[in-house]
Simulated scan of single mutants.
Amino acid sequence: GERFDVELLFVCAAFHDLGLLKKFSSTADRFEGYASSTYMWENAAGKKFWVKYHFKTEQGVQNFTDAEARAMRAEDLDYQRRDLWEASARKDYPTWRLEMQIMPYEDAANYRFNPFDITKVWPHKDYPLIPIGRMVLDRNPDNFFAQVTQVAFEVANFIPGIGPSLDRMVLGRLFAYGDSARYRDGANYDQLPINKPIVEVHNYNKDGPMRYHHSGNQPVYAPNSYGGPRADPQRYRDPSWFVEAGEIMRTAYMAHKDDDDFIQPGTLYRQVMSPTDRDHLVENIVWHLSQGVERFIQERAITEYWGKVDSDLGTRVARGLGITAPQPTGGR
């Protein structure tokens, strides 16, 4: 198989207990949501900041072990969905606290790693979490298809003061999410009740299959002389940034001094995970690498991947696979 070092932090989290959510419900513990992408905020004075969103459970976190997850998969595939539904039905509402990491606009250029790299997290000691609100799931859908299957989330739908960053995943998703909605729900997906804006929208969208709201004989071009809607860029301008050389082009990111794909996974293993967490991580990696994986790929996974995250991790995985692995170059 191919090796993708840039995904290593996510892979460590997925093979750790964090990747094995046990329950959504508020009687047990539940999962947390972390921003991978970076966005921009702009205040009324025009001052800009880079931000990440975090949704922190107010009940703590509880996860399956890998063995428990495999057993539950065989027993009840809808276990988590039913748990979430039942919690809301009995008014034991699942709740998350919204906390933000906020980076001054000027910090990004010389920060020690690229803050727009989706594979990196911002250390809390540099940019501590700031609570700003709560999200409460206080009711269940009346009709699953109409209100869940047809829902369309579109990254490009920003309210004034919020915009994209140089994060290339965000820039791709500005197009991709709306395109996905058009494919799934049709050209007029934003007229479905679950997707329709709360306030009236004035624009020049028209026609397409299943369109039922229209603007009469309004001209289809702007500006026009017949009272059609027009943008108000003074009140609702799009947040933007100054583009310097190398920021927006089809090349790799400009490297910062700590843009090493193994630094943050190593820190996660050594400083964040408990001894039990590390035991489970090793067990999960060994189990998956034992499922029909060829020996030379197992060896490469140790010397070129897990051993570079941390030499102890590489040694333990090798031992679990019955391999005497050489010390990887760059191991910690």
Rank of each mutant, 00 (worst) to 15 (best):
A69C: 05
R30A: 15
P219Q: 03
R270N: 08
V136M: 01
E200K: 13
R97V: 04
P239V: 12
D277G: 14
G307V: 08
P141G: 00
E75C: 00
V151I: 13
D185Q: 15
G320W: 00
I162K: 15
T324M: 02
P197F: 03
D261H: 05
L9R: 05
Y39V: 07
A301M: 12
N217L: 08
S240E: 05
E247R: 09
V121Q: 13
H16E: 09
T95N: 11
R97H: 01
L174P: 02
P131F: 07
W50S: 15
E75T: 11
R235I: 03
G60W: 01
G227A: 09
M100W: 06
G314S: 04
A109C: 07
I159E: 12
K52W: 05
A301L: 07
L171C: 00
T65D: 08
R278D: 00
E244R: 15
F10I: 06
V293A: 02
Q191W: 10
Y204T: 10
Y53Q: 11
Q59L: 12
N140S: 07
D142Q: 14
V201D: 08
Y269I: 00
P131S: 08
R332D: 01
A87M: 01
G216I: 03
Q218D: 04
Y39L: 13
F15G: 04
Q234H: 09
Y79I: 15
N140I: 08
T149I: 13
A108E: 04
K22Y: 02
Y236C: 13
V243A: 12
M254G: 07
P164L: 10
G246Y: 05
T329K: 08
A222G: 10
W85H: 13
R270Q: 10
Y39Q: 03
H256T: 07
H202M: 11
L166K: 12
D190I: 07
E247G: 05
S165M: 06
A108L: 01
R81K: 14
N203T: 00
G33I: 14
Y105D: 10
A222H: 06
A69G: 06
E68P: 11
P193D: 01
P239T: 07
H280T: 04
D29Q: 14
K120I: 05
P160H: 03
F31T: 15
W50D: 11
D232Q: 13
D232C: 07
L174N: 02
D232I: 08
T38Y: 03
T149V: 10
N140R: 05
V317T: 01
P164E: 14
N224S: 03
D277P: 06
A152D: 12
R3E: 05
D232H: 12
F242D: 06
N143R: 13
D312F: 07
L9S: 08
F15C: 02
R332C: 00
